[in-house]
């Protein structure tokens, strides 16, 4: 009998990174940059200008609030959509079985898949932020910009894991894209991206702690304030926890689904 030992962790991680990057290129339907720019950059720029315009007319917050919120929302959309498509598109293109027969660790394979989508979220967000800064004539200092990107990467990771958890649901349920759109809209309100957190009902404020980007948004809003360092540590830690919870939910539900598929054929 021939036995094959599991590859070293390092080899697994590198290999999973390579496959996740290749799958990202193959599955994410934004191969033409023009379409990506129209849907993932131009649209959020226009929306943040609209919300800033609405906010200024209703006397709510300032342009910086809507600029940062709009840029964070721009990061959420490709991260969540990518997370969903990382699984549902595999099935759509008939390559999902290849994952199931792979002897790679599911944990590495799935966790790594979130990374390219998170980077895509960052790219969309930075481009949106640049466009928004020009349109709204609001400038962020380089220090705040770097902090924003670093914090946002955590938010993008939790969004991608959240999207992948939805993607697992999409393997057994129809209309997952409807659910995805509802989730993104819920995050825009619940994570206080386009409305101030203080006006949300108490139950929304409490339940929104499980939403991706919620804590990052809170940390970003604190940028430049006196107790920013404390807020950044607390909120970054909370966002990492949220990302970990969604990753666990995704892995557990995928594992359960896989065993059911193998059991029931």
């Amino acid at each position: 009998m021939v036995t094959r030992s599991q590859p070293h962790i390092y080899t697994q991680v590198i290999s999973c990174w390579n496959t996740s990057f290749l799958s990202f290129r193959a599955l994410f339907n934004w191969l033409a940059p023009r379409h990506f720019v129209l849907a993932m950059v131009a649209t959020p720029i226009m929306e943040l200008i609209f919300f800033a315009f609405l906010g200024s007319n209703l006397g709510v917050e300032d342009a910086r609030f809507f600029l940062l919120g709009g840029a964070m929302l721009a990061a959420c959309t490709p991260s969540i959509a990518g997370g969903v498509m990382a699984l549902t598109s595999e099935r759509h293109f008939g390559t999902f079985e290849h994952i199931l027969v792979s002897r790679r660790s599911r944990s590495y394979l799935l966790l790594m898949r979130a990374v390219p989508y998170s980077f895509m979220g960052i790219v969309a967000s930075v481009l949106t932020l640049a466009g928004g800064m020009i349109a709204l004539r609001v400038l962020l200092s380089p220090r705040h910009l770097i902090m924003f990107i670093a914090l946002l990467f955590l938010g993008c990771l939790s969004s991608a894991f959240f999207g992948m958890a939805l993607g697992v649901l999409g393997l057994v349920a129809s209309n997952v894209f409807l659910l995805m759109n509802v989730a993104i809209s819920t995050i825009s309100i619940g994570a206080a991206l386009v409305v101030p957190l203080s006006v949300l009902p108490k139950w929304v404020q409490v339940t929104s702690h499980v939403l991706p980007v919620r804590h990052v948004a809170q940390a970003v809003r604190e940028m430049g304030s006196q107790d920013f360092k404390g807020a950044i540590l607390w909120n970054a830690g909370s966002e990492v926890l949220v990302a970990a919870v969604w990753a666990l939910v995704m892995l557990a539900s995928f594992s359960r689904l896989e065993s059911r598929m193998r059991r029931e054929g």
Binding site: L54, V60, N175, V182, I189, P196, V199
Partner: peptide, 21 residues
């Protein structure tokens, strides 16, 4: 469903901004 639900989110955003303002 998406056509019908999305404006409800717009309404919620408008409402919360209205309250904040």
């Amino acid at each position: 469903a998406l056509n019908l639900i999305t404006p409800i989110f717009y309404a919620c955003i408008a409402y919360f901004l209205h309250v904040a303002g």
